[in-house]
Design a binder for these strands. Structure first.
Lengths: 225, 225
DNA sequence: CCAAATATAGGACGATTGAACTATTTTATT
DNA sequence: AATAAAATAGTTCAATCGTCCTATATTTGG
């Protein structure tokens, strides 16, 4: 099922029981991180949630840092897997696939887990370099599909312009999380917000031209800030 | 200078020294929260940063919860003040003011403090009801100006549609923080991203019509998800 | 089935945490 | 100057933290 290389202590996880245990540990850690935040995530709480002792947990993960590293890989791998399957189910035309991705992202960020996990990840990335790397790696992979579709919808854009438009769309969608996410004040408006997002992003990708984004040359001439 | 009602222990802060001390405490706490995150924010670290003892800190804030409550008020009040002055400096036409606000928000979220504080606030809001209330109150106030300008630019929008468009724009801008913020991978592209944002949001507010956002009636007929 | 590797339990360590308490010093007002 | 309120220092407490160590139980491969 999962084929990524985990970073637990070498030697551990070779028995079936150990592999299952690692999975239990990561699932439990993810649940605590989502429910209580990073400040509420401790080795003892993880061990208790799994039903093992701290000594046993420490056998798999000698330090909390090791566990967090594996946890981020585990969660991010799950999202990438989810993202790929969603892409496969998309429509035929580039525009349909583009809209399907927006729909998928919005639907996903309104789930309990995603709503609560990602703000934690963003905060973590501000103080943990490793978390930052994992986060940006996740988003970079997630933008590959978006950028590809943008290129099909609007072939006039340069590579850099396409990447910047893709980043803007991706980041904008992520920004909806604390507002329309699970249990958030605007969660009941998610259907309308989604329509606004689709119209806005489709128009953006369709209509935007080179002149709208200053090149490095014209940027030197007229800095608009 | 600051006129908001703080929530420190009654009786404290009546002397000038006490008022200055409270300000020092909140500034120090904000700095630690920004630099180390909430998990790295402790009463002792705050006291040490201020140069007082834990006992003295507890005299002002009997519990960490009380301090956090005051801290959020303090920081949010600062942002609202900053936002109001920025609005006063904006141009004459509604469209110019709209663009000025976008410029201000993007410039602000690329500062070190804002880049690091708000993700912490979003994560905090997921696990602390009081933090959630403060956060949404801040954004609600910040959207007042945006919504007002949207109404001037596009008077055809209903109240609800205007609010939803305003929320989408505000949330989208916030979402840029973990990507183009201070020290983030796309920080060097902030000028171009800003142009994309301005074009996208101006087009959205100018062009959007009632039909683009389904009313409660048509929503029942055709759910597009 | 047996030996080596793996998994688990349980306790202990020092450090840190939020909180509480008392005694002393400083401030502002009369 | 006197006095009441406010501010500060210093200590202690129980709980929790990450980490480490040792002994025992379990699993797997030959």
């Amino acid at each position: 099922m999962r084929s990524i290389k985990l970073q637990n202590r070498p030697g551990t996880g070779t028995y079936i029981k150990g592999q299952e245990r690692i999975e239990q540990i990561l699932v439990a850690a993810q649940g605590i991180l989502i429910d209580k935040g990073y400040s509420g995530l401790s080795m003892r709480k993880i061990a208790t949630a799994v039903g093992i002792t701290i000594g046993n947990l420490h056998y798999y993960y000698p330090s909390k840092k090791d566990l967090l590293s594996d946890l981020l890989d585990h969660v991010i791998e799950g999202y990438l897997l989810e993202f790929n399957t969603a892409r496969a189910e998309a429509g035929s035309s580039a525009l349909d696939q583009f809209i399907a991705i927006i729909n998928f992202i919005v639907d996903d960020l309104t789930t309990h887990d995603t709503t609560n996990f990602f703000p934690e990840l963003w905060a973590l990335a501000n103080h943990d370099e490793q978390a930052a790397e994992r986060m940006h790696e996740l988003y970079r992979k997630a933008r590959l599909d978006i950028n590809d579709l943008i290129a099909q919808i609007n072939p006039t854009l340069s590579h850099q312009q396409r990447e910047e438009v893709g980043l803007f769309i991706s980041a904008s969608l992520e920004g909806l999380t604390p507002f329309i996410g699970n249990g958030k004040p605007w969660n009941s408006n998610v259907a309308n917000i989604k329509r606004i997002a689709i119209k806005s992003f489709v128009d953006l990708v369709t209509d935007i031209r080179d002149e709208d984004i200053a090149s490095s040359k014209s940027e030197l001439i007229a800095a608009c800030d």
